[in-house]
């Protein structure tokens, strides 16, 4: 939480997707390296952070785990505020959760920064024998939509780390090239030249120490 070391960037990443696809477990696997067989229904939002080292930068990832139930979407716009990345999660064993990806994507682009990094994530890869969503199909869809793509298993940790790290790296790249223009956390002064960004980082470090 507040105990993290100093960091260069804060990236807010949201986890979205249908109810029951394993968003909360992806979060707990990535941030705590835990998998709870009996996790609780997410009401509204859950929240966790993890600091990762990418190249020479320390990045603090703020991961927001949202409720998947349809009616909660009425308030999801509040969750998307300031997000620079998103993992759109579906369950490879439930085709319907994959079909709704398009709706989620629209939702996302309606409310969030259109330049944000989005990865389509097929979760529950461990349930290979129950698979109903072929990898190729999902990959094609992702390519068509310009999304990154990966299949993960929060249960056996397959690709969880990789998925998050790829997203964070991509965000970092965009930030460095200043492709993203607005809607990010104060630490990421996206529109400013590099020097200014440094300044913002320094500031951030200072305030972090004080907390």
């Amino acid at each position: 939480m507040g105990s993290d070391d100093s960091y260069n960037f804060v990236f807010k990443v949201v986890l979205i997707g249908e109810s029951g696809v394993g968003k909360s477990n992806l979060l707990s696997r990535f941030t705590k390296n835990e998998f709870l067989h009996d996790s609780r229904t997410t009401i509204g939002v859950e929240f966790s952070t993890r600091t990762v080292q990418l190249d020479n930068f320390t990045i603090k990832a703020q991961i927001w785990d949202t409720a998947g139930l349809e009616r909660y979407r009425a308030i999801t716009s509040a969750y998307y505020r300031g997000a620079v990345g998103a993992l759109l999660v579906y369950d490879i064993s439930k085709h319907l959760t994959y079909e709704s990806a398009e709706r989620w994507l629209k939702e996302l682009y309606d409310h969030a920064d259109p330049h944000m990094v989005v990865m389509l994530v097929g979760n529950k890869k461990d349930l290979e024998n129950l698979r109903t969503v072929p990898t190729e199909e999902a990959k094609d869809f992702a390519d068509k939509k310009g999304l990154m793509f990966m299949e993960t298993s929060a249960l056996d940790s397959t690709n969880v780390e990789a998925a998050f790290n790829e997203v964070l790296t991509a965000i970092h790249k965009k930030v460095a090239s200043r492709e993203v223009t607005r809607g990010s956390i104060s630490a990421v002064t996206l529109s400013s030249p590099l020097g200014l960004t440094r300044e913002a980082q320094e500031e951030r470090k200072g305030c972090c120490k004080s907390s």
Binding site: G2, F47, K60, C208, S210, S211
Partner: peptide, 14 residues
């Protein structure tokens, strides 16, 4: 009141 950033405050409230 001691904390200044959302990332530290929200977990406390959640």
């Amino acid at each position: 009141m001691e904390l200044n950033d959302e990332g530290a405050m929200l977990p406390l409230l959640l």
